[in-house]
């Protein structure tokens, strides 16, 4: 099987996972907020976490990590939803159940993201993923 076919197989799996678990999780999360039921929203968060876990397993099977596009999309969506949450909280339109549901989502995702980085790259390695060294320091190592 060619490298292209290999990449396509992985992408098909990722699309399928997020198309089902991600969107269903989002739906449950919103349903919980609409009905003021934290437990339903937490069920949605659990599905989203399950999608992440499945994504990491697929990455493991195909011996790869998150692609740049996936990372950008994930971090972008996280940031956008975070902004919506912060503005809604400031606007005072949220109930306590909404508030806890939001905190659960962002808290669990942030904790999960850090746990992923630390387990995959180690403490120092995880820091290095974001630490951009100045050009002269890089040249010193050469």
């Amino acid at each position: 099987m060619s490298q292209t076919d290999h990449r396509m197989d992985r992408s098909v799996l990722i699309f399928s996972l997020w198309g089902v678990l991600g969107f269903l999780g989002l739906g449950l999360f919103l349903e919980g907020m609409q009905r003021d039921l934290w437990s339903v929203s937490a069920g949605g968060v659990a599905l989203i976490v399950l999608a992440f876990v499945a994504h990491i397993i697929v990455n493991g099977v195909y011996d790869t990590g998150f692609s740049q596009g996936e990372a950008a999309l994930g971090i972008g969506a996280y940031g956008l939803l975070g902004l919506v949450f912060v503005f809604s909280a400031i606007g005072g339109t949220m109930t306590m159940a909404d508030y806890y549901a939001g905190l659960t989502l962002f808290g669990v995702l942030a904790a999960g993201f850090l746990a992923y980085l630390f387990t995959r790259h180690g403490l120092r390695g995880a820091f290095s993923r974001f630490h951009i060294k100045p050009m002269d320091k890089r040249e010193e190592r050469l």
Binding site: S11, F15, S16, V20, L24
Partner: peptide, 21 residues
């Protein structure tokens, strides 16, 4: 065929999940 096959796999999973839900 490549698009029909690859996207079709995603579509099959989505459709089956929709039936269950």
């Amino acid at each position: 065929m490549r698009a029909v096959g690859a996207l079709g796999t995603v579509q099959a999973v989505l459709a089956a999940s929709a039936v269950v839900v």
